[in-house]
Simulated assay, not measured.
Amino acid sequence: MNVAEWAGIIGAAGSVLGGGSWWISRATRDAARATAAATEAAARANAAPAQQAANFAVLEATVKRVDEENGQLRGKMSRLEQIVRAFAWTTDRWARQMHRAGIEPEPAHPLVDEYNRTGV
Rank of each mutant, 00 (worst) to 15 (best):
residue 54 A to S: 04
residue 26 R to N: 15
residue 14 G to W: 04
residue 110 P to H: 00
residue 13 A to S: 10
residue 118 T to C: 01
residue 72 Q to T: 00
residue 101 A to Q: 09
residue 108 A to P: 00
residue 70 N to I: 06
residue 105 P to R: 02
residue 45 A to S: 02
residue 32 A to D: 14
residue 102 G to H: 08
residue 24 I to H: 02
residue 76 K to F: 13
residue 113 D to Q: 06
residue 110 P to G: 01
residue 44 R to S: 04
residue 120 V to P: 00
residue 55 N to H: 03
residue 55 N to D: 08
residue 75 G to D: 05
residue 97 Q to E: 14
residue 45 A to I: 01
residue 85 R to Q: 09
residue 12 A to E: 10
residue 99 H to K: 07
residue 64 K to Y: 10
residue 74 R to T: 00
residue 105 P to T: 08
residue 44 R to T: 11
residue 94 W to H: 14
residue 114 E to R: 12
residue 48 A to L: 05
residue 69 E to D: 11
residue 56 F to Q: 11
residue 8 G to P: 03
residue 107 P to G: 01
residue 97 Q to C: 08
residue 89 W to S: 06
residue 85 R to T: 07
residue 22 W to N: 12
residue 93 R to N: 14
residue 2 N to D: 08
residue 83 I to N: 04
residue 47 A to R: 03
residue 72 Q to H: 09
residue 108 A to V: 11
residue 28 T to G: 14
residue 117 R to I: 03
residue 22 W to S: 14
residue 35 T to I: 05
residue 26 R to H: 15
residue 54 A to Y: 01
residue 44 R to H: 07
residue 116 N to E: 08
residue 11 G to I: 02
residue 26 R to G: 15
residue 47 A to Y: 01
residue 74 R to K: 10
residue 26 R to L: 15
residue 11 G to M: 00
residue 20 G to A: 08
residue 77 M to N: 12
residue 54 A to F: 05
residue 82 Q to M: 05
residue 108 A to F: 04
residue 28 T to D: 15
residue 65 R to L: 14
residue 61 A to S: 13
residue 4 A to C: 02
residue 117 R to H: 07
residue 101 A to M: 05
residue 13 A to N: 10
residue 111 L to M: 04
residue 22 W to F: 11
residue 27 A to F: 08
residue 109 H to N: 03
residue 59 L to S: 11
residue 39 T to Q: 06
residue 33 R to A: 14
residue 8 G to N: 11
residue 103 I to K: 08
residue 115 Y to L: 07
residue 83 I to W: 00
residue 89 W to A: 09
residue 52 Q to Y: 02
residue 61 A to Q: 12
residue 73 L to Q: 10
residue 41 A to G: 02
residue 30 D to Q: 15
residue 43 A to T: 05
residue 49 P to K: 02
residue 66 V to N: 15
residue 57 A to M: 02
residue 39 T to P: 00
residue 9 I to E: 09
residue 88 A to D: 11
residue 29 R to I: 12
residue 33 R to G: 11
residue 51 Q to V: 04
residue 34 A to V: 09
residue 73 L to I: 00
residue 59 L to E: 12
residue 105 P to L: 09
residue 26 R to P: 09
residue 39 T to N: 06
residue 66 V to L: 15
residue 1 M to C: 05
residue 62 T to G: 07
residue 67 D to Q: 13
residue 38 A to N: 06
residue 70 N to L: 12
residue 72 Q to K: 10
residue 99 H to Q: 13
residue 114 E to F: 04
residue 61 A to C: 10
residue 102 G to W: 03
residue 22 W to Q: 13
residue 25 S to T: 14
residue 62 T to H: 14
residue 106 E to S: 04
residue 18 G to P: 01
residue 63 V to T: 11
residue 8 G to K: 11
residue 45 A to Q: 04
residue 42 A to E: 04
